[in-house]
Design a protein around this nucleic acid. Structure first.
Length: 897
RNA sequence: GCGCGGUUAGCUUAGUGGUAGAGCGCUACAUUGACACUGUAGAGGUCACAGGUUCGAACCCUGUACCGCGCACCA
């Protein structure tokens, strides 16, 4: 027998166990040749140089729960881990470090090759951190298949995908308006622009009509600094105020020029003055107006967001925000600024660069998404199921309004676009992975990182692995990347058909998508490094254990709802682990454990199996299908809560407390049956909890021999003795026939009800006091063996019984299912009791009133279902009797004073 | 403007039509007890608001308010 410490010490267990697991499972290597049914998950790859956040903890714990459960269900499990190169994020991090630590060194100073080498060094140094952290959390990923998006194999798949799409005509290069980040100096996709409310100013400026000197058009703008790029002025063709102006010209103040006035339906007559200055090179809508009216495209900004307009030396070279103020001043000096008023508007910010993006005309690569209709269909037909389902609306909306994807980035860290150029060669450009030869120069741009990770669901697997494990079973991720990643992975699967056949069902990437909530702090703020409100999960693991963190977090994380995180919840998780530990510790004090314990060997009729044991077994077998149903809906917190409640209340507070009567009496005839019930239930509790709390459950399972002997009777080694991880999942076991026969009486419930009522009666009186049960008509007395339990749990000096025909005693009492339970207290505080009676009376009267109202309403009696009416009819006299008895007691109390 | 969530005890929340439930926190009490990472008890709720459907609404419908998120617009 293993001696258990008085409290569970996670740090003493976790590291040792994890190392052991890696040995036992060959690092959780999934066998692609296995005949077991497959279960597979690909990890949402964290940034290679990132560190573990609470979001990762939630997400990866859920995946680990699914994988561990699947193993126990006898499936061959692949949880494929890896990391993402995070092109722009990583490049920015390395650049800023260089700038700080190496006197302003930039990547341009180093050159592309040397810089890439730097980033690889950085990646080698920090790249393993998050993987190590996942191991601390207990994640059972297949570490033999760990993948990085820049691995040679994966890279080839990414580039080949580009080449294929190019050859099919889905990819094109074009000079178009893109979202330009002046801080990172790259294009970004629409999905990476964060609209942010800003307090800005609306400037109303005056443009003179050239052909009608003295007539001025007032134009509202938030961006006077771009007026040098104005190549037109637009009015709505329907607007009577400006009829006849189209075809004339307006005078641009600086650099002074006459620019055409055009009529364009885009202009909203109700907004501002109804006149729009058109800056085709610096605004998406203006770009389109410019195209429609053949206006010139004048770029007056540099890539880093400075004014590029030598003709206006006052502004040339100024930062765009400086230039905004200065140009307003210049307009005012010329009498051309009519108004300047505060204005709230929404400005697109670059997610990475944290600065306003600049709509900018530039040469980029675009993808016309293929298979968008198929992608809509597979989700509509529920070939791919979303949990919660309402996210399908968001998904549908995006896919039906989809824009071409700008896949090129002006960064050096990532997959370089596989397009080659050679001046004067008629074959240029060529799209292929390898260089076509001497003199060919590769495109300078790299691919958007999401254009790498959209192949993650299958390009991480070799052919053999894919034929066993693809499509994957579940994807667990946040709804914030539903477009960036989830939808694109679905499209990639349908377009590249990596499955066993070309059929849609073999190429759906994943069967289920589980969306987690966002973790917020206790004030409701999103957790982020900037706010500093995100605890370090490793600190929490050190303080409360990985199991405590996992269980505490999952218990309060309802599906798809945001989570208000409070460290208290992790503390509760740890406390729960300790409760379990001590319940097992108590068990070890009663003698050796029987891993094959079978309560059905004990006869309930002769009370070898007590009512307490029967009730527990009944509840356990009611719990199992509930847990399975919750898992089927991916309602993890429901499972965790149900287990918490069962273990703490049904198992510890009630059953174990009742069982002490047996254990303290070596002669008890029900001792063996109670022990068997304890072992049988514990064995299942440990297995049910293992996916949530892998360490403590394995530690207890192995040390106490729940897995059975090391070798089976035929001499083969018994794997379940060495670890709980492959022990059979209890919900999958058939319900034993004997369980159905157990539930013949609820006498244990009656005992527990008396315990609750009696404790309430005695209130704060701590010494042992006598109780007296006065049976109601027709109630059967508790079994003899139940009386010591009742006495112990009530902390009673004795519990006496009286028949219905016996005289009714007086004194404080409570209604219980068997009748009335009286207590004899050394001293009765009449004031206290009066309050208690009044409280009971108020409750009874409220119930009685509502029941009588129902019964007195003929309409209700006529229309309510018969069983409900019968219920109310039966309830009424019971309540009335309660009221009468309480009033009697109240009178007696009044008389006594 | 459109869409998706949400609003139940001080806090976090469960609750798909029939007497509002839990955990934390708070208050009081209890340490030869498996567990103070504990036990026992107590206080604490017009279920956001207004209509409607129904014999009956926290629950279904409509609307309103407020909070969060997304999309679009944003001169």
């Amino acid at each position: 027998m293993h001696d258990l410490a008085k409290a569970y010490e996670p740090s003493a267990v976790e590291e040792r166990l994890y190392a052991r697991w890696l040995e036992l499972t060959d690092s959780y290597h999934a066998d692609e040749k296995s005949v077991k049914p497959a279960f597979s998950i690909v990890i949402p790859p964290p940034n290679v140089t990132g560190i573990l956040t609470m979001g990762h903890v939630l997400n990866n714990t859920l995946q680990d729960i699914l994988c561990r459960k699947a193993r126990m269900e006898g499936k061959e499990v692949l949880w494929l881990p890896g990391t993402d190169h995070a092109g722009l994020a990583t490049q920015t991090k390395v650049e800023s470090t260089m700038r700080k630590e190496e006197k302003g060194l930039t990547r341009q100073m180093l050159g592309r090759e040397a810089f890439e080498k730097r980033v690889w060094e950085w990646t080698d140094k920090y790249g393993g951190i998050i993987i190590q952290q996942l191991k601390k959390l207990g994640c059972s990923c297949d570490w033999t298949r760990q993948t990085f998006t820049l691995d040679a194999e994966y890279s080839r798949a990414v580039l080949q995908a580009f080449v294929d799409l190019y050859n099919k005509g889905h990819i094109y290069r074009g000079k178009r308006m893109v979202n330009w980040c002046p801080a990172s100096q790259t294009a970004i996709s629409d999905e990476e622009v964060i609209p942010t409310p800003q307090k800005g100013k609306l400037y109303t400026i005056r443009y003179e009509v050239v052909e009608q000197p003295g007539r001025f058009l007032e134009i509202a703008t938030t961006r006077p600094e771009t007026l040098m790029g104005d190549t037109g002025v637009a009015v709505n063709p329907e607007d009577p105020r400006y009829a006849g102006l189209a075809g004339l010209h307006a005078r641009r103040p600086f650099p002074e020029a006459a620019i055409p006035i055009v009529a364009d339906a885009h202009v909203d007559v109700k907004f501002g003055t109804g006149v729009l200055k058109v800056t085709p090179a610096h605004d998406k809508a203006d770009f389109e107006i410019g195209q429609r009216h053949n206006l010139p495209f004048l770029d007056v900004l540099t890539p880093d967001g400075k004014i590029n307009c030598p003709e206006v030396p006052e502004l040339h070279g100024l930062d765009r925000f400086e230039a905004r103020k200065r140009s307003a001043e210049m307009l005012a000096e010329r009498g051309l600024l009519a108004k300047e008023e505060p204005y709230d508007n929404t400005v697109g910010f670059s997610e990475r660069g944290q600065v306003p993006i600049e709509p900018r005309l530039s040469e980029q690569w675009f993808l016309r998404y293929p298979k968008t209709q198929d992608a809509l269909d597979v989700v509509a037909r529920e070939q791919i199921k979303f949990f919660p389902r309402h996210w399908t609306k968001t998904y549908d909306h995006w896919l039906t309004n989809i824009q071409d994807w700008c896949v090129s980035r002006q960064v050096w860290w990532g997959h370089r676009i596989p397009v080659w150029y050679k001046d004067g060669d008629p074959a240029s450009p060529k799209c292929q992975i390898a260089s076509p030869g001497e003199g060919w120069v590769q495109d300078l741009d790299s691919l958007d990182t999401w254009a790498s990770s959209w192949l993650w669901a299958y390009a991480t697997m070799d052919d053999a692995t894919r034929s066993k494990f693809y499509p994957t079973s579940v994807l667990v991720t946040g709804p914030d990347i539903i477009f960036l990643w989830v939808a694109r992975m679905i499209i990639a699967g349908l377009e590249f058909t990596p499955g066993k056949t070309k059929a849609v069902e073999d190429n759906i990437a994943f069967e289920n998508v589980v969306f987690t909530g966002i973790i917020r702090d206790k004030y409701g703020k999103k957790m982020s490094k900037q706010f500093g409100n995100s605890p370090d999960p490793l600190d929490l693991i050190a303080k409360y254990g990985a199991d405590g963190l996992r269980f505490g977090l999952i218990r309060i994380a309802p599906q798809g709802e945001d989570i208000r995180f409070d460290e208290k919840q992790v503390e509760e998780g740890r406390n729960f682990c300790n409760k379990l530990w001590n319940a097992v510790r108590f068990r070890t004090m009663q003698g050796p454990i029987d891993p094959a314990a079978d309560p059905s060997q004990y006869d309930p009729e002769t009370h070898e199996l007590t009512s307490f044991s029967q009730l527990l077994l009944h509840k356990l077998h009611k719990l199992l299908p509930q847990i399975q149903a919750s898992f089927d809906r991916f309602e993890f917190s429901e499972v965790a809560s149900a287990l918490y409640d069962f273990v703490w209340n049904d198992f510890c507070s009630r059953f174990i407390e009742a069982a002490k009567a047996d254990f303290q009496n070596p002669e008890s005839p029900s001792r063996a049956g109670t022990l068997a019930t304890l072992d049988y239930t514990l064995s299942r509790i440990l297995r049910l909890l293992h996916p949530f709390a892998p360490f403590i459950t394995d530690e207890l399972w192995v040390n106490l021999g729940f897995g059975g002997p090391e070798t089976a009777a035929d001499g083969t080694p018994n794997a379940n003795a060495r670890t709980i991880q492959f022990a059979p999942w209890p919900c999958a076991e058939p319900v034993p026939a004997w369980v159905k026969d157990l539930w013949t009486t609820n006498s244990a419930e009656a005992v527990y009800a008396m315990v609750d009522a009696g404790r309430n009666l005695r209130g704060a009186v701590n010494q042992k006091v006598p109780f007296h049960l006065h049976l109601a008509e027709g109630a059967s007395a508790p079994y003899d063996y139940e009386m010591p339990v009742l006495t112990a749990l009530l902390n009673a000096s004795e519990v006496t019984l009286a028949l219905p025909s016996d005289p009714v005693p007086s004194g404080p009492f409570a209604f219980v299912p068997l009748g009335k339970l009286y207590v004899t207290l050394p001293k009765i505080d009449p004031e206290e009791e009066r309050k208690r009676i009044e409280k009971d009376l108020a409750k009874v009267r409220k119930d009685l009133e509502s029941t009588r109202k129902k019964l007195g309403d003929p309409n209700m009696i006529a229309r309510a279902p018969a069983d409900k009416v019968a219920e109310w009819r039966a309830l009424e006299p019971v309540l009335a009797e309660k009221e009468r008895t309480l009033l009697e007691r109240q009178d007696a109390l009044a008389g006594a004073v």
